[in-house]
Each structure stands twice: as C-alpha cells, then as structure tokens.
Amino acid sequence: MITVEGLTKKYGSTVAVDDLSFTVEPGVVTGFLGPNGSGKSTTMRCMIGLDRMQAGRALFDGKSYSSLRAPLHEVGTLLDAGNAHSGRTARNHLRWMAASNGLPVKRVDEVLEIVGLQQVAKKRVGQFSLGMKQRLGIASVLLGDPRVVILDEPANGLDPEGIRWIREMLKHLALQGRAVLVSSHLLSEMALIADSLVVIGKGRLIEQCTVDQFISRHAKKWVVVRSPQLGNLVDLARAKGLQVATNENTAEFHGVESAVVGELAAGNGIVLHELSTQTGSLEDAFLEATALSVEYHGLSESAT
C-alpha cells in the first residue's frame, strides 16, 4: 500500500507537483494518469527519494523510502527502461542490483526466466530492442519480490505484443496481492490495465476513483435521432429549450435522456427510425477532465 500526502515539488518558481495526495491499494492496478508534463514522473521520482520534495511525504506500508534498508525487497521501480549501461550484459546488470540488496545470483537467473530473457542473459543491453529492455526493467522490478510496484509509462514505444505482455504482467502482479502503480498519458491504455485511477493535471490531483466512475462522470452522453420528419422534431425540441445539433439526416440532443426525446416525438406523431444514446470515448473523458490543466496546448487542439 502506498500513501502519498501533500507531495509538493518545485523547480525554482515552477511548481511541478502541487500538494498531491493519493493512495494505491494492494491487489489492484492503479493507473496514474495525466497529460505529458503533468508531473507523473516527477511524482514517482520524489516518491522514491531520487528528487527532493519541498513538502509532503510518500509512505510504503507506513515507511518512507529512505528508511528502507534494502528497498528492492519492498518496492520495485521502473522509471525508464533505458536506465541500464549499454555495455553491460543483462545478467550483470541485474547482478549488481541484486548484490546491492543482498540478493543471491540465483534470484537473477530466476527473474531472467520469468521475463523470458534467459537466452540473451549474456548479451549486452546495448544490443537489446526496446521491448527487451522493458522486460529487463521488469526483471529488475521483480528481483526483491516487492509488495509495491511502480512503473512509469511502461507501454511507451512498445509494439502491440510488448504492450500486451506488460498488461498481462501487471494484472498478474496485482493478482498476487501487490500494490501496482502504473503511469500513462493514454486513458485507453489505462482502461485496459487499471482498475483504479489517480488523475492529475498540472501537478494537481484531479480525481481518484475507479475507471468506470471516471468515465461516467466525465464522458459526454447525447441522444442521436434519425427521422424522416427530423426538421419538425428539432423545431419542437428547440421550442422547449433543448440543445440540438443537426447533421445531414441525424440530430444530436445534448443534456437530455433518450426517453424525453422519444416521448416528445410520440406526443407529436413523429416517426423515428433511430433513437439511441451515445457515450463519448475514454479519450474524450480524459481530455474533458484535464482540459483546464493541460500544460502545453498543441496545434492539434482545435482538431480534436
């Protein structure tokens, strides 16, 4: 279990993370979601003491990271799979990490087998593909069999097979009762992996909730209608003060239940060919929730 309380990180006068508090429960995958530059990586670095936080604390089963004598036994972290000397072999890379926490070489061979790298254990990391480096990173996370796992954008840059592997691995780790925190800037990815969400924007907590709650709160719903007498229905609805957008042969009713539209049509003898409720995509929900907090507004903003 991870408890983050009031974590604040400033770089000069820029506030990267602002009074951030959340918890990560064991047994589930918690998605740490936010746009690029929203402070996810900074938060993770502060949590394990790599960066100094100005205020707040992060506790792992009640203990701060710096108080852990052999932290790999408690917390497994993968911030960037590229953090490995390209000239070292995979096995030697894991060996020095294992030795630092008093773990035997036998454990190195075990985790290499778990992630399926035993064949290339004696190859240099520099020859590894991104997917293989990611597997090596997961192997280093598993070294000490930790109860808490923290991963920063583990799916970034992976091919579909690699993404699926990571996804299965994370679910597996959570099923074993570990607390798993995994960051991403893609909600669609999170929706497939995570059970629970911590959503941040501009370094502030936007929401901590389940994935379903997040979507139902933020995703837009609207009613789509197809009718040969569409014009009449739209006029009637507008007269009642409803918000309607019309396309060529459909109309979208916003902020209203489908029953209201159906009854309006029936009451006026209008024939309907379609009456359905549409829900916005996950990405829409995410953009909606973080719209006010996006750090860098790209040119593509108007196109989305």
């Binding site: 670095r45 394990i48 003491g49 790599l50 990271y65 710096s66 852990l68 932290p71 790999l72 972290t77 911030l79 960037d80 590229g82 953090n83 490995a84 000397h85 390209s86 990490m97 630092s100 926490n101 280093s140």
Partner: peptide, 18 residues
C-alpha cells in the same frame, strides 16, 4: 560519470537510498 551518462545512477540510488 558513466552512471549519469547511462542513467544507472537512478537505479543505484533507488537500490541504496543512503
């Protein structure tokens, strides 16, 4: 310096916080 150029300093300090 190779710890900084190769990024392993973060792993080193995560494995040994002191």
């Amino acid at each position: 310096t190779q710890e900084y150029s190769q990024g392993t300093i973060r792993l080193t300090l995560a494995a040994t916080p002191s």
